[in-house]
Write a protein that binds this DNA or RNA. Sequence first.
DNA 1: GGTTTAACTGAACACCCGTTCAGATCAAAG
DNA 2: CTTTGATCTGAACGGGTGTTCAGTTAAACC
Lengths: 207, 207
Amino acid sequence: MARTQGSHSDITGPRLRDAALRLFAQDGYAAVSMRRIAQEVGVQAGALYNYIPDKQTLLFELLQAHMQDLLAAWRACAPGPDADPLARLEAFTRFHIRFNTQRADAVFISYMELRNLSPENFAAIEGLRRTYETTLEDILRAGVAQGAFTVTEPRITAMALISMLTGVNTWYRGAGRLSLPEVEALYWDMVRRAVAAGPAATGDDTR
Amino acid sequence: MARTQGSHSDITGPRLRDAALRLFAQDGYAAVSMRRIAQEVGVQAGALYNYIPDKQTLLFELLQAHMQDLLAAWRACAPGPDADPLARLEAFTRFHIRFNTQRADAVFISYMELRNLSPENFAAIEGLRRTYETTLEDILRAGVAQGAFTVTEPRITAMALISMLTGVNTWYRGAGRLSLPEVEALYWDMVRRAVAAGPAATGDDTR
DNA sequence: GGTTTAACTGAACACCCGTTCAGATCAAAG
DNA sequence: CTTTGATCTGAACGGGTGTTCAGTTAAACC
């Protein structure tokens, strides 16, 4: 079955994934044909089906791999639950910006192509995403519990912060005026101020 | 040319736009065929070309109309530049959430389908978007100028806040636990704290 | 050197795409 | 009642779609 030595087709699988990721991010899943992907890999369209069952599964595997990478990367560098919540929050903030700017294509697809997934595949990806959101939510709850944060709706605040942080991808291009550490510092400052405990909000109106 | 009285086809144009907006939001521009749109309108595909020159222009007009509506609606309810920056910022925050949750489909398309625009059409939409971002940026600069806000990068902060506010659309469905005014209040609290002047940030590290 | 076998080609399948257009339809105008 | 002209149909055009598969290729194995 498997070759003992690497033949040139041992790299077709990864090359297929790379090309698909880039093309999907560029033109969108629906607008990229299997023939276009095959051309990028340097192969005929039929050959792709030695590596994937169909186009839909290819998309799903890309998204799933991305989300699993994200969760694994966070687990690899996350401070433990006993660490200072402020430090945990800062680590999360910097991690999110760093990881997402490094994999802009995968992040883009993960937000744009969810609707092209079958219901079961969608549910699987959605579950992974929820897991990630919950790690931030847990940090916020820990900070609230020990009085470091003032957050009345941890779930919503977590999603709001993630939206803000992911927004970096819409403008950051790596060659701009600000370095990545500077960007991290800017966003960390906003995140910290948005949740840090302090003089209570006037909280007077709900209009 | 134009009928003096409304015939049934005077409504085909608007119905076409409504159907296209909904279908594009649901399945994506590339995945929605002209025949599918025509079916929704109750007409054959060819008839659509009495109202639009081509599919690409239909998308552009939807996005352009949305952005122009957004800018017009803001101008209609925006406090003048002499108002208190904090009040202006609150008005912007509440306006953005209210407008965007009311037109979720158009907002969704405006973020997802930009890449399906021709370069000229893209530039036009991008210009409108920049105009909107700049209105928030101007509010932030005004607040900084009179010491109400502590913001070192108004442009980036404006985009970060807009990302956060637009993120409401990813989870708000109108029938949830929180009312829209409650959501507005939650986000306004985060926005205010993120930019309000106060005890200076420790601002020690850039890592 | 002959056999095996994974990898790949190239053609085919049935179907859908955006767009065009001659001709039918039918309400309003004269 | 005839003319007008916007509106719409239905078929067609050239081309692209995801996927399948018999047959070719060529590297690895005995």
